[in-house]
Amino acid sequence: MSLHISDLSFGYRHHPLFDGLHAEPLRRGELTALVGPNGVGKSSLFRLVAGLLSPSGGTISLDGNDTARMSARRRAERIFLLTQHTATRAALGVFDVVLLAKRGWRGGKASQEDIAHVEEMLCALRIEHLSDRMVTELSGGQQQLVALCQALVRDPDVLLLDEPTSALDLRRQLEVMELVQKVTRRRNIVTVAALHDLSLAGRFADRFLLLQDGRVAVDGTPEEVLLHRSTADAYGVGIEIERTSKGTLVVESYLR
């Protein structure tokens, strides 16, 4: 039971991005970090998997079903993309925004369970106190937490997180990644997070995918990928890792 990306091709006009991208199956219950330098196609890959972009070739299948054959609505129920930009100017309340992930498109009122679920997730992310505020009043980090809450409430089979911690403070980063890890295991879903903080990624991810030159260049455990020469080359830096006395993976990078 997994997400399978095979032979994926895609490009923007005058700018080919992927030509036959292939990844070993992304398994349920596994938190994968998608890493790679800026502009390598992490967000585009997410959009392709979520169906926001259509590939020019190749297939993406979820539990054996081709996602291109699913209806847009069905696909959006099973695969959710937390977009990189979470700032919004919508005149909506925090609770309304999170609940939107639950409301069916045919209108109608939210059920008791849905409201309870939203409450639960607001508490899990420690943003319950923001629930009466307008999203436009919130800081960038708070807006990101609200978007994350929406993603978790959505309860998809595949959770794609595009830099989910980019605007968060130190404690929030750890809390969010821990929660994402827990949710991935407990709900047995496929979670892929694009992360630039390799220490944070190394600490919570089960697996690393390094994207480089339109393909998955290295695939393996955090240590394997971090120590691989291609990773250092892709970023153009030197990378060293060590374990602290508490067993935490620390990634040190330097310009070479």
């Binding site: 959006a76 959710f80 919508a90 939107l100």
Partner: peptide, 22 residues
Amino acid sequence: WARNSMMTALTMGDERAASLGV
């Protein structure tokens, strides 16, 4: 009226609405 949830989702931005299946 039948599209009210979708329109509400759209106020958050095209991409976020699209990822909700709009």
